[in-house]
Amino acid sequence: MSHHIVEVKHLQHIYADGTVALQDVSLTIHHGESVAIIGANGAGKSTLLLHLNGYLTANSGEIRIGDFPLTKKTLPEIRRTVGMVFQDADDQLFMPTVFDDVAFGPFNLGLPVDEVKQRVKAVLEQVGAAHLQEKPPYHLSGGEKKRVAIATVLSMSPDILVMDEPTSGLDPFARRQLMGLLRDFQHTKIFTSHDLDMVVELCQRTIVLHKGIVKADGPTLEIFNDDALLAECRLEKPLSMQGCPVCGKGR
């Protein structure tokens, strides 16, 4: 296993209607890192994520995942390596029951039925959703959906977890539960989020995207202390790093 697990070089993406979503993005993510990609709406976060498992093809630039460059030939292997959790769990949970959904990936990998069943069971236990196995997705709560969505990806035993807005739309308890879950994962983790407090808690490193380029890349706390940068990129300091407006005490 190489030391750099994700390598993006001079990535550019222009949509069919002429919108330049990514101008020139380069970044390297190392094995076991937990990285946040933040930025205003339209900064190119989602476009970048969609390149990481080859759903979108770059206009120019190069992507390497692990030991392979991303090409048509390596695509199946890369899609297994990069587990992608989408923002809206309803898009991810398309099968009739939780079991079928979690088993979807392993079946596509061509695993035998017994092993698929084992994996599904193990993964659902890991995310605390073993009791939901036979339920259809539309009878689940938001937090349950999110955890099952993560399970659908974990069941393919990916090396890298990519998550788009993992905490959006969750109530405080479900959010807390999810963050606890994510913290325990040993995978390399890449998040996009507007939940900057989550970023502070879960990610050592933060990359700021602004208008399709990497505006900053460094330790999370350092970035959130750079007020000028945050203002320029339409961001703000996480609440947990601001002084308390009621008692006046800082962190």
């Binding site: 498992n53 899609r79 992608m84 989408f86 898009d91 398309f94 979807f104 990936g105 990998l109 659908t152």
Partner: peptide
């Protein structure tokens, strides 16, 4: 949404 679902399906092989 259909496009996103298709994406999610492709992402899982």
């Amino acid at each position: 949404r259909a496009e996103r679902i298709h994406m999610a399906m492709l992402a899982r092989g």
